[in-house]
């Protein structure tokens, strides 16, 4: 299931068993959060669509679609916080602070095959891993961080409030139906248009979920019926949506966790491989430039005849 978050199994296999177990557990729980929230969003949209379109097929389709959309959106928002610092990469690899100081031309030349390069990089990674590096989150400017968080929190809050309303309509549908019946019985609704168009289905069909096709009327009855409880329930759903984000942002097990360490080491390995291959190519070209054949070829190209 971890692949749903875009997590790779190979990174877990390089951790100690206890580290891997814990990391799998916390990312697994994160996926559970996402699934539960996406389920809530799907249920909410199912309710809205059922009320507006009065079609079970449309309601289920819209519910599934929105559920998947929410799953992706949450994935994007949560994982956007896992951002290893470029500075860390630089300090640990390019500056050769730890393990590349012995990577001179002689050593690079000695790495003849891919297997040798892999073995060398594996060794370097193992050494860096034991240094207990801290992979800090990328330090962005305050304004950028503030705006980004404001944007993400606003999106999550907006989504949460919409979902909360849908869930409340679903959970309290029996109470809303009872209220509508009581209103009709008490003759409080004197407006015929409301009775004919909002409280009566065309062709004498039965209503789905709530016995009115007006979302505004239903929300009005819901708000009046729940009173302050509506605010509390909305607030709880907003917390549910924001909690995983805050957790990703604040929990040391995510930002400074073992998976992040493996992810950074993986990035280092990629850069290291390209560094070695590039250096080998440079050396190859250099040897060619220093050879007598190159000198002869250059002479011929410049003067139009072979060097005597």
């Amino acid at each position: 299931m971890l692949f749903l978050l875009g997590l790779q199994d190979t990174h877990f296999s390089r951790m100690l068993p206890e580290e891997a177990r814990r990391q799998k557990q916390i990312y697994g729980i994160l996926i559970a959060f996402e699934f539960l929230l996406a389920l809530a969003a799907g249920l909410s949209v199912y309710t809205f669509t059922a009320v507006v379109f009065q079609s079970i097929a449309w309601a289920i389709t819209a519910g599934i679609f929105f559920s998947l959309l929410t799953l992706n959106l949450l994935n994007l928002v949560f994982l956007a916080t896992l951002n290893p610092s470029d500075d860390t990469l630089y300090k640990n690899w390019i500056s050769k602070k730890y393990s590349l100081k012995d990577l001179n031309d002689e050593k690079i030349a000695s790495l003849k095959t891919n297997a040798e390069i892999d073995a060398y990089l594996f060794d370097v990674k193992s050494k860096i891993r034991t240094k207990a590096l801290s992979f800090q989150q990328k330090k962005a400017s305050f304004v950028f961080t503030f705006l980004r968080n404001l944007f993400l929190v606003s999106i999550l809050t907006l989504l949460a409030v919409v979902v909360a309303n849908g869930l409340e309509l679903f959970f309290f549908r029996h109470e809303i139906n009872k209220t509508i019946h009581d209103l009709l019985l008490s003759n409080t609704l004197t407006d015929n248009w409301t009775k004919e168009h909002l409280l009566q289905q065309q062709g004498g069909k039965e209503f789905l979920l709530i016995e009115s096709n007006s979302l505004l009327l239903n929300l009005n009855l819901l708000t009046r019926g729940l009173g302050n409880w509506k605010w509390i329930l909305d607030f709880v759903v907003v917390i549910l949506f924001l909690l995983p984000y805050v957790l990703m942002y604040r929990s040391p097990e995510f930002l400074k966790g073992h998976y992040m360490r493996e992810l950074v080491l993986h990035q280092l390995e990629i850069s290291g491989r390209h560094f070695i291959l590039t250096r080998q190519k440079v050396m190859e070209i250099k040897v060619y430039f220093d050879s007598p054949e190159f000198e002869e070829q250059l002479f011929e190209k410049l003067y139009g005849f072979k060097k005597p």
Binding site: I29, F33, L36, A40, L167, F171, F172, H174, E175, K178, T179, D182, L183, S186, T188, L221, R224, G225, L226, G227, W229, L233, V236, V237, I239, L240, L243, P244, L247
Partner: peptide, 29 residues
Amino acid sequence: ALVFFILFGLVYLLCIPFLAEKLFSDRVV
């Protein structure tokens, strides 16, 4: 995580008609 699951559970407890009835005021009409 515990807070998340508790809150989520509390919200879904509203599926129980008795609880939903308790929260919803019948004063609306």
